[in-house]
């Protein structure tokens, strides 16, 4: 009898205490896996590794980086989304696989942003359009004017399928111009082709072109962001110039759906602390990524918007 009573009290106590006391569910008690959806060595990988080190400081557990490349970045997302929702497997990715490639890659066990859990945004990247340093085309208006007079004559180096093509297509449609889109498989090849003067224009991310912009080999005409960049305030936005195309690439940290709320809070807090970690900031700012924490809900809203917006474009683009 006494035994039963003790058990009941203990059960009652733990029931009452569970939501309030995080110590009931100490988290994390073992290493966490941070999955990145591109191979080792790229920009995403550098960010994941920097984030991993920053997270270790606040979570007090090792954070292992797992590179799962392939499927236009979707394989890595699949690995995270199909994992146990226990908080020990999280991922970092940009919106390219989640909002654009998701429409073209078949058989994914996930879909729109409600099928996974975005914990928060950590960095923002703008796309830009550059011309050769010695190009006679001085401004965006020059390019549009020349392209209208000589349809199909200018060529632009870019990357197929992702945010780069989506952004370019949106701009070309708004400006009503016909410029030959030459898709390369990555920043390196696109930039090399542009530097070798095979194309007059390059439409890539700012980090991809940054090194060339700094030495004056590439001249940025405008950025696709919602406002000018703090580092380059003299470069206008497309919106200012009358082309209402605003896109960003966002790095987000996400997890499978259904992580216990108490663990979710711990993870989000750790991500927020990482954002102010000087080493993490340095890795991102070196690549000209704007470091900023964005709420998971806000990120989900933005992703859903792009996801819906790209659905028809991505399908007709096939």
């Amino acid at each position: 009898m006494r035994m039963l009573l003790a058990t009941t009290i203990a059960a009652g106590l733990s029931w009452a205490g569970a939501p309030a006391l995080a110590s009931d569910d100490p988290f994390p008690t073992k290493p966490i896996t941070l999955s990145v959806n591109y191979g080792a060595g790229g920009g995403s990988d550098a960010i994941a590794r920097a984030l991993g080190r920053a997270l270790e400081k606040s979570l007090k557990q090792p954070v292992a980086i797992e590179n799962t490349a392939g499927g236009a970045g979707t394989r890595g997302v699949t690995a995270v989304v199909t994992a146990q929702p226990d908080g020990y497997q999280i991922g970092v990715a940009t919106n390219s696989p989640m909002t654009i490639a998701v429409h073209t890659v078949k058989g994914l066990p996930w879909g729109d942003p409600s099928t996974y859990d975005i914990l928060g945004g950590i960095g923002i990247v703008y796309n830009t359009i550059c011309v050769q340093a010695d190009s006679p085309l001085q401004t965006l208006d020059d390019v549009v004017k020349f392209a209208k007079e000589n349809p199909g004559k200018l060529k632009v180096a870019s990357i197929a399928g992702g945010i780069n093509q989506y952004t370019w297509d949106a701009f070309a449609k708004k400006a009503n111009i016909n410029i030959r889109f030459v898709p390369y498989s990555g920043d390196a090849e696109g930039v090399a082709s542009f530097l070798g003067k095979n194309t007059e224009l390059a439409a890539l991310t700012w980090p991809g072109l940054k090194a060339q912009i700094e030495v004056g080999k590439a001249r940025p005409l405008a950025v696709f962001g919602p406002r000018r960049m703090e580092s380059n305030p003299d470069v206008p936005t497309f919106k200012e110039l009358g082309y209402d195309v605003v896109t960003t690439s966002d790095y987000v940290v996400y997890a499978p759906k259904g992580i216990p709320e108490s663990r979710r809070v711990v993870l989000i807090e750790a991500i927020k602390q990482s954002i102010s970690d000087p080493e993490f900031r340095r890795v991102l700012t070196t690549q000209n990524i704007q470091v900023k924490f964005t709420d998971g809900e806000e990120m989900t809203r933005q992703f859903t918007e792009v996801f819906r917006g790209t659905a028809p474009t991505a399908q007709s683009g096939k």
Partner: peptide, 16 residues
């Protein structure tokens, strides 16, 4: 590319 990544992590932008 991985070596380049190692430089980026150190805050050095590889380039011209």
């Amino acid at each position: 590319a991985l070596m380049l990544g190692a430089l980026i992590v150190q805050g050095i932008q590889p380039g011209p």
